[in-house]
Each structure stands twice: as structure tokens, then as C-alpha cells.
Design a protein around this nucleic acid. Structure first.
Lengths: 188, 188
DNA sequence: GGCCTTCAGGTGACATTGTCAACTTTGTAA
DNA sequence: TTACAAAGTTGACAATGTCACCTGAAGGCC
């Protein structure tokens, strides 16, 4: 039997999925509450029963995406068959994959100002990242390295997405930049 | 005497200034063509005499900002009293200053997809940057280093703007990351 | 079982905004 | 002087976010 809260949760999920789909397909301007409602099988006013406003819906999408990356990172961190350096590389590769496969979502995840919901989810994804770096460079340097690696990775992904980082112009791409960044770490 | 083309150019400039001001003050949503027109002293339809649509106006703002950075970079590149490394650092600092003082504009400059107008202006700003790197690491490595430095700088600035890079969390800031990145270069 | 609260959902309405078509005005070239 | 082209204005319209109000049913309480 389907309880009321279950159906409400299902609608909420459907709204998020619909909005994320529209975002992927047509960018931010394609995300209209009317179309979101239609795709989720409800009316144009229904989203207001689950989100304060459009911005709140978009924020929830960003937070969910960060949490998905966080799950990936946690799984990678626990993998006993991978080198620590390999884990770091794989975590950054996960970000790159999101940037390439879902560029609009990736941009939304980095939209300022990041609210507490997004910051917490993003922070959760960075926990295993820092932990891996601690193994490689020690407590004192982990954050310093982490900031440089993460900045470099995000910058490369972002510039590739906007069309500013092309192989034609820079003789390289985001993959190679990630390799270079990870190469800064001592072997491990 | 004021010729017609002069007055048209003045209006165009006034529209750009008004839109850029609104962007700085209230972010992208504050930029409405009606308000832009009002600030520029013309009516709501006037912008269509100078720009194809709102997007075209925003693109022009981004291109102008890139050209301003390019002018800075050209000046720095020609400065005989600065070390090559100092020039590289100063060019990146110029980007950081834009990101901190005018975060909405900075984000607009990196909005995908970057049209040819923006790409050309951005490319102009990167010319002196690559030239400086050639002096430091040679032709073969200049682009590789350039991509890493630029990605790292842009990533740090972007994460700082979105609130993801805080000293509280990462024990560092964009300034220090720029220092670290420039530190990768051989002295010169 | 009957009643009542609560909440998901629907609908009408409204203000804002981007955009276009039609009109007016005014340098400027012929 | 006259005619043209381009700048600017205004009316209109569709799309959209949002709110107020209404409906209906699930589920707790007597």
C-alpha cells in the first residue's frame, strides 16, 4: 500500500528528475516550472508543495548531484584494490565526467552563492578526497594540496565546458591537466 | 557637433555601462532590458537598435571585460621593470581582482558556450601570458604550463566566488594558490 | 463508523519581462 | 530640398514565476 508520505516523496523525486532532465537537454532556460510539472505528471503549481520556489528546486538538484559525487568518492575511498594516488585521480575523474556528460548540471553545482545544503553535500564529497591526500602528503599539507588539486581540476573542467580550453589552442585537455596535477603528488 | 554615429555609439556605451552596473549590483536577474534602458536614458525598446537581443548584450559585456583584461596583460607584458615571473603573477592577479570585485561579471565571462567574440577577446588576453611563459619554460612547454596555471587560477577564483573555497575549510585562499601555481615555474 | 484536520494538488489571476511590429523623428547624402 | 536610413518610442503579446483560493482524500480521533 502506498502511504501519503510515500507518494509525496515520489512526486518530489519526479519533479527533481524532470527538472534535471530539462536542464541537461536544454540548459537553465529550459527549466520552467510548468514544463517540470508536466513532465512529472502534475500541474504547474504542484512544485510549490515541495520547494519554496524555483531557486529552491535548482538548489536541491545541485545538492543531489553533489551527494551523488560524494557517494562515488566514499566508495572509491573504501576500495582496497586501488592505490591512494589512483583514488585521488579517480575522484577528480568523477568530477570531469560530470562536467563533460552533464555540463549544465556541473555549472549549477558551482553556482554562487552556494547555500548550506550545497556546501554540506560538496563537503561530504571532499571528505574522502582529503583523507586520501593525508595518506600521501601528511596532515599538514593535505589541505594545501587539496585546494590546489581541486581548484586545478575544477578550472580545467569549467574552461573545457565553456569552450575556452581546447586542444587546438592549448595543445592539451582536461584529462592531461588532471594527470599533471596528480603528478605533483609523491608516489603512493 | 555631435554626429549621428557618435550619438549612437554613446548610447551603446551607455547601455553597456548600465547593464554592467546592474549586473554588479544585483546579479544576472537584475539585468532587465527595461531597467537597462531606463538607466541609459532611453526606452525599453532602444537596446534592440544596438544588440540583437538580451543575450547579445550580455555577450558584449563579457567581451568588453575580456578586452579590458587583455589591455592590462599587454601593458604588463611590455613593462621593462618587472620580472617575467612577476608578470605572470600579475596577470593572474588581474583575473583574481576581477573575480573578487565583480563576481557576477567574472562568471559571465566564463559562461558557456563562449561565442567567437568572447573567445577572441579572451585569446587576446592570453597572448602576453603565453609569451611570458615561453620566456620561462620554452616554446615546447609554454602551452602545457599555461593551461595548468590558467586552469588552477580560474578554478580557485571560481570556487572562492561560489563560497566553496574558504580559509576556514581549506586553510588557504586563492592568493596562496596563485603563489603555489607560479611557484611551479622555474625562477626568472 | 463518522468526523475532522492536514496537506498534496489544481486553477484562476497577476506582475514582470523579452520580443516584435508599427510608427515617429532626425541626421545626412544626393 | 527631398528622400532615405537608422535611432528611438510605444502598443501589444506570449511566456513565466508566483500567490490566493479551492478541492479532495488520507489518516488520526471519538
Amino acid at each position: 500500500m502506498i502511504t501519503r508520505v510515500e507518494s509525496a516523496a515520489a512526486t518530489r523525486r519526479a519533479l527533481l528528475d524532470a527538472a534535471a532532465g530539462l536542464l541537461d537537454e536544454g540548459g537553465p532556460e529550459a527549466v520552467t516550472l510548468r514544463e517540470v510539472g508536466a513532465r512529472a505528471g502534475v500541474s504547474r503549481g504542484a512544485p510549490y508543495r515541495h520547494f519554496a520556489d524555483k531557486d529552491d528546486l535548482l538548489t536541491a538538484i545541485a545538492a543531489r548531484a553533489w551527494n551523488s559525487l560524494a557517494d562515488q568518492a566514499v566508495t572509491l575511498g573504501a576500495d582496497p584494490d586501488m592505490s591512494t594516488r589512483g583514488k585521488v585521480r579517480a575522484m577528480l575523474a568523477g568530477m570531469l565526467a560530470t562536467g563533460r556528460e552533464r555540463p549544465h548540471l556541473y555549472r549549477l553545482m558551482h553556482r554562487p552563492p552556494a547555500g548550506p545544503e550545497v556546501l554540506q553535500a560538496a563537503g561530504r564529497s571532499q571528505g574522502p578526497f582529503i583523507a586520501a591526500l593525508r595518506d600521501l602528503v601528511g596532515d599538514a599539507q593535505a589541505h594545501r594540496f587539496g585546494a590546489v588539486l581541486l581548484s586545478g581540476a575544477h578550472g580545467a573542467i569549467s574552461m573545457e565546458a565553456s569552450g575556452q580550453l581546447t586542444r587546438d589552442k592549448w595543445k592539451t585537455d582536461a584529462d592531461e591537466i588532471l594527470d599533471t596535477l596528480v603528478g605533483l603528488l609523491p608516489a603512493g
